[in-house]
Design a protein around this nucleic acid. Structure first.
Lengths: 196, 196
DNA sequence: TAGCTTTGTTAGTGAATACTAACTAATCTT
DNA sequence: AAGATTAGTTAGTATTCACTAACAAAGCTA
């Protein structure tokens, strides 16, 4: 059930790392091949094009994220509040572990012109949005969260606040404390929609 | 006191428009010159480099935004709530009027590797953040807003929610209603921090 | 009107880029 | 062990890119 070969994963990780360090404009087949220690044409044995590499990076991360968060959501018996905190805790830690993916995921602007890449990013965003919205809806239904503000707006606020926190962390050169700042944002929102 | 010549502004607007339509990777001196109906070297009479064009675009927008928002903030006598609504109303309308700038402003990821460009974007973000934070602090001080959540966290939440709404509007091809969706997010937050 | 500045042109340069052709060594299958 | 497949190599190609050299025409200034 291995979707990617070892070499493909090695290439994807090297690409992600280079994008994070030097920006997507610096990701070329040449620099990538050098990073791995292969010749340029060797990369074409594993991917058909440069674009396919980027698309697979997103696919790979989407897979990982889906499994990880679904593992959290499927645990029954926890409160909505505990669940959403667990989701963000897990996601923020994933970013800390692999800061490089952020550059790729948060790059809709860059992929604007490319059909396949835009779709992958949209799917990623939709997935996260789905998990959060479901959590909010459950919390509002069981009385944990206030119903003052619509679930869709709350979802936007939470994801938006999280995104910008991650972005700031990236712009700070990873010197701020992402886990702390991210959880502070989430807890701020939770405090506001708290219904005891 | 004209900071830019007419021709410079024409070039900056053409560049912004092209980035919005086809992504920053498609902005080349050649396509830009074609858009304006000039030869490539002619552009170098007005800017020293391609990077300078991008930097001036940000500078230009920053200037416009600063004047516009300062005009709102300087009006005395309005409540904090009215003020922040006026700020966002104005900013969202500015985006609707010139959707192209969004692609440039929200592109930290792209400029990550470039010193000057990163600085411009950071300054823009800091400016908006400053206006919002001041508003929240005033509202919390005069009792309009709840003090339950720290002003810095509220600022992050508001700007983050706004940003993602703008981004969604852009990804939708400007088919959603930015003004309506954006104000719904702001009003959601205001509702939560309402203190009567 | 002579000369200078401004703003444009045509023609080109070197460097970089994604990708290919042709070949080879190693490994797997039978 | 023979043949096929896999995964690598060297040496290119066509294209694109930001930018430059050299020149020209128009208008302003002296």
């Amino acid at each position: 059930m291995q979707q990617f070969t070892d070499r493909q994963i090695e290439i994807m990780e090297a690409a992600t790392s280079r994008i994070a360090k030097y920006g997507i404009q610096n990701l070329t087949i040449k620099t990538l091949a050098e990073d791995i220690g292969l010749s340029e044409p060797a990369l074409y044995r594993h991917f058909n094009s440069k674009n396919e590499i980027l698309q697979c990076i997103l696919e790979y991360f989407k897979m990982e994220m889906k499994n990880r968060i679904q593992g959290i959501v499927q645990k029954k018996g926890s409160s909505a509040r505990d669940e959403i905190r667990a989701i963000f805790n897990s996601q923020l830690q994933a970013f800390v572990r692999k800061p490089a993916v952020i550059s790729v995921i948060f790059a809709e602007g860059i992929f604007h012109f490319d059909e396949g890449l835009t779709r992958q990013v949209s799917e990623l965003m939709d997935m996260m949005q789905g998990f959060i919205k479901a959590n909010i809806a459950r919390g509002q239904a069981n009385g944990e969260y206030s119903r003052l503000v619509a679930a869709s707006v709350l979802t936007t606020i939470i994801i938006g606040g999280m995104r910008i926190t991650v972005l700031k962390w990236k712009l700070s050169g990873h010197s701020s404390n992402l886990l702390k700042d991210g959880m502070a944002v989430l807890d701020g929102v939770l405090k506001m929609i708290n219904k005891e």
